[in-house]
Amino acid sequence: MNARLATPRDAEAGSSVLRRSISELCHADHAGDPAIIAAWTANKTPDSWLAWLAQPGASLFVIERATEIIGVGMVDGGGTILLNYVAPEARYQGVSTTLLKAMEDASARRGLATCRLESTKTAQRFYIARGYEPLEGAISAIMAKPLAETLADHPKPKQTDG
């Protein structure tokens, strides 16, 4: 399984994965409340996707199985992980871990020493198991991980024409 840089052609399918993942997998965060789900997914659209692709320094990744997108991740130029979502049918298959590693590697290649994120309740154990720790004094689930690993075993993701 490999992450690749997203393209404009991925906008519809990628946005759908984001909305489905939030709606179906993040129950601990939204408790099925339609208003919370609607607010959380409001910007998970093809138009937002195109804006994310244009964000300077950001890397938007997807993972495909056959030709179907099953995971979406995004890290900004400062090492803040903004998205890490998996299609419900691909949960517990290493998709989120692969995306996380791609985002960490992209940040390390930029010379950053740390990645940060704000975790959902649903994903806190996942991030803790992968070396992220709550930041001291953080009010919410803001976590960070030093990027001390070498990049030798993690080549740069393939760029595809969009």
Rank of each mutant, 00 (worst) to 15 (best):
T160F: 15
I81V: 13
S59Q: 14
T122E: 05
L60P: 03
G94P: 09
A152I: 07
A113G: 08
T80M: 14
A42I: 01
A90M: 03
A129I: 00
K101I: 10
V17T: 01
Y92M: 13
T41F: 05
I81L: 13
I70P: 03
R65N: 06
R110E: 00
G32E: 01
L82H: 14
P88T: 05
L18A: 09
T7C: 10
L25D: 09
E136K: 13
A123S: 14
A54P: 07
L60I: 07
A58I: 01
H30M: 01
A90T: 04
A13P: 07
Y92S: 14
A54H: 07
R20M: 11
S23L: 12
R125C: 04
A129C: 05
A141T: 09
A54D: 15
A148E: 05
T41R: 04
G94W: 14
I142C: 14
T150Y: 11
I63H: 06
V95F: 04
D47M: 08
L100Q: 04
A106D: 14
P155W: 00
I63D: 11
T45N: 04
N2Y: 11
P8M: 07
A102S: 06
A51R: 15
I63M: 15
L53Q: 03
L112H: 09
K44P: 06
G57D: 02
A3S: 12
R110D: 00
V75P: 06
A108M: 13
L82A: 05
Q93C: 10
P56H: 11
G77K: 09
T7L: 06
T41M: 02
G78V: 08
A113N: 07
A6F: 12
G32I: 03
K44W: 13
G137Y: 14
A87R: 00
I128M: 07
P8Y: 09
P88R: 12
E24V: 11
H30D: 05
W40E: 05
Y132M: 01
A152N: 08
K145N: 12
M74A: 15
L151P: 06
S23H: 13
A87H: 07
I81E: 07
A35Y: 13
L25R: 03
P8C: 08
P134L: 05
I36Y: 04
A148K: 10
Q93K: 06
D47L: 12
I63W: 05
Q93M: 12
P34C: 09
T80Q: 15
G162Q: 06
P56G: 01
A11D: 04
A144M: 12
D76F: 01
E12H: 02
A35T: 13
G111P: 10
A6L: 11
S48A: 11
A138C: 07
T160N: 13
A152F: 10
V86F: 10
A38Q: 13
W52P: 00
A102M: 04
A13V: 03
Q159G: 09
S119Y: 13
E133P: 04
R20A: 13
L135T: 11
I63S: 08
I128D: 08
T45Y: 05
R130H: 12
I36V: 15
W49H: 00
A144Q: 15
